[in-house]
């Protein structure tokens, strides 16, 4: 019983990161109607960014977020202008096909680049408080992962406020809903796309940082994180960031539960089964608008 409870707690903790990873993807997909399959690779790069900031300058990994997020914002802006701005207004079939191929090409290139630069070894950030554990009854909660969960929640809450209150946040939401109407009301739709993609990349960077603290990064984690983020996006549906966070938690707990019941290898399967069922039964997702 305790083992199961412990598993579920760990599932909940990683679920927060699934939510954060999915939030960026969901924002980009919702606004641009383009699925960025290189999202996991952006998370991977964020993880390495944080790793090197810690390794070279001795920063605290959570403080490194203050640098990783703006860097990722700029990087995202460049990626949008260089690659995705060309497909975003193409007709539906071309947009789907070409954005997938662009994203996949980008993913391969970033993966190869990371292997060249940093070898294929797994790395993780080691902190003095990395081993600290909070005991609640008989449940052990790793401090770093708990902090990550809280930070993920704060970031997603911040994003929610940004989209709800900020002038450009409203512009982004309007563009997501109906870009032609948004254009007619004088919104610079292109800039809304740019902002959405940059913010999405920044969230990926933040997620990567938290992954490299509580877990580990290697050049090949990208695809796995893309899949997790996709599952959460489909599960939660578009349009609600808080919903996406909840979706992440649901996936984390469901994975932990299925690993406990069916054994480790099948933890991946439950996500995919959820994925297929939601796609077929409720394609707009649990919280989709």
């Amino acid at each position: 019983m305790n083992v199961l409870a412990q598993q579920l707690v760990l599932g909940l903790l990683i679920g927060g990161l699934y939510g954060l990873a999915a939030a960026g993807l969901s924002l980009v997909f919702g606004v641009m109607k383009v699925l960025d399959v290189a999202h996991g690779e952006l998370i991977m790069l964020g993880g390495y960014g944080a790793f090197w900031l810690v390794a070279l300058f001795g920063l605290d990994p959570f403080a490194a977020l203050v640098l990783v997020i703006p860097l990722a914002l700029v990087g995202g802006g460049l990626l949008y202008s260089g690659l995705f701005s060309f497909v975003v207004r193409a007709d539906e079939e071309t947009r789907v096909k070409n954005s997938l191929l662009i994203g996949f090409g980008l993913a391969l290139a970033l993966h190869a680049l990371a292997v060249q630069l940093w070898t294929a070894d797994e790395r993780s950030i080691v902190t003095p408080y990395g081993g600290a554990v909070i005991m609640v009854g008989e449940l052990a909660i790793p401090l770093v992962r708990l902090l990550s969960l809280l930070l993920a929640f704060l970031l997603i809450g911040g994003l929610h406020l940004l989209l709800a209150r900020w002038r450009w946040g409203k512009a982004i939401r309007a563009t997501a809903e109906d870009w032609q109407a948004a254009l007619l009301t004088g919104i610079d739709v292109r800039r809304a796309y740019l902002l959405a993609f940059a913010i999405g990349t920044a969230l990926a960077g933040a997620a990567g940082t938290l992954v490299s603290v509580g877990y580990s990064v290697s050049p090949s984690i990208g695809l796995e994180w893309t899949l997790k983020a996709l599952i959460v996006v489909v599960l939660a549906g578009l349009g609600s960031m808080i919903g996406t966070f909840v979706g992440g938690l649901v996936l984390g707990v469901a994975e932990a539960a299925s690993a406990a019941v069916f054994g480790g290898p099948y933890r991946e399967v439950v996500g995919l089964v959820i994925f297929v069922v939601v796609l077929v039964v409720r394609p707009r997702g649990l919280f989709g608008k």
């Binding site: 789907v96 991946e268 297929v276 077929v280």
Partner: peptide
């Protein structure tokens, strides 16, 4: 299912087969 959603469905099946 159309567009990206069909893409995701087909990917999910291939991944289940792989696992």
């Amino acid at each position: 299912l159309r567009g990206f959603y069909l893409v995701l469905l087909t990917v999910a099946f291939a991944e289940v087969c792989r696992i």
